[in-house]
Design a protein around this nucleic acid. Structure first.
Lengths: 109, 109
DNA sequence: GCAATATAAAACCATATGGTTGAACGACTC
DNA sequence: GAGTCGTTCAACCATATGGTTTTATATTGC
C-alpha cells in the first residue's frame, strides 16, 4: 500500500495527467483522444497514459486498432483516505481563522 | 494553483516525507527529530524537509540552534478537495459491488 | 494486397530527484 | 575562547522523469 500511494501521488503530480483524468471522468477515451489536447508529441502523451496505467488509475482495453481507457477510481479513493487523516488540522485552522474574523467584527461595533 | 498541486502531490509521493508529516501531526518537531527515524544521512533527510517546505506543507521557525517545523494543512486540504472531485466514481463502484453482493445473498436463499 | 490509422517501442537528450560526503556556520556549554 | 550540537550548503553520483524523433506492428478500408 505504501508503494501504491507513491505511484498514485507521483502520477497526480503532473498537470497533463490530471487533465487526462478529468477527460476520463466524462467517459472512455482512446489514447489518441487523451493525447490530442496536449501540446506535445503523441508518443510523449502516450507515455503519460502509461504512467496512469502503471499507477492503477486507468484501465485499457483493445477495441479494433484503438486502445480505450477508462478511469479506475479505487486508488484515488485510497489517496483521498490518506489525505483525510489531516482533516482535523485544516478544520482547526479554519476555526481559528473564523474566530479571528468574528473578533475583528466585534471590534468594529 | 496548478503548480501548487504539482508540488503538493510530488511532495506526498515519497514515504519518507509522508512519515515526516505523520510525525508533525503529533506536534512541532526539529529537523533533527524529523530526520532521526530514517535510515539515511542527516543531510539526506534534511533535503526531504526542504521539499516539504517548498511545497508549503511545512513551516519552520528558528529556536536557538534548532529549527522547529510545524504542519501547514492548507495545501493538504487543496489536494484533498481536488481528489474529492472523483468521489462519485468510487462511490458508484462501491454501489455496484454492494449490488453484486446483495444479489449473491439473494441466490443463497 | 496496399495505404492509412492508432498505437507501441526504442534510442536519445536534458533536467530533476534521492541519495552521499565533507566543509562551514551560528548557537549554546564549559 | 574552544568544543560541540543542530543545521545548512556545495559538490558529486546514479537513476528517474518528461520530452523528442524514428521505427515497427496491428488493424481497417479500399
Amino acid at each position: 500500500m505504501v508503494e501504491r500511494l507513491d505511484l498514485t501521488f507521483a502520477a497526480l503530480a503532473d498537470p497533463t495527467r490530471r487533465a487526462m483524468l478529468a477527460s476520463l471522468a466524462l467517459g472512455e477515451r482512446s489514447v489518441g483522444e487523451l493525447a490530442a489536447p496536449h501540446a506535445m508529441s503523441f508518443a510523449g502523451a502516450a507515455k503519460h497514459v502509461g504512467v496512469l496505467e502503471r499507477a492503477g488509475l486507468v484501465e485499457r482495453r483493445k477495441a479494433g486498432r484503438q486502445q480505450l481507457c477508462r478511469l479506475k477510481a479505487e486508488r484515488l479513493r485510497e489517496a483521498d483516505e490518506w489525505l483525510r487523516q489531516w482533516e482535523r488540522f485544516w478544520l482547526s485552522t479554519l476555526d481559528r481563522l473564523e474566530a479571528i474574523i468574528v473578533e475583528d467584527q466585534e471590534k468594529l461595533k
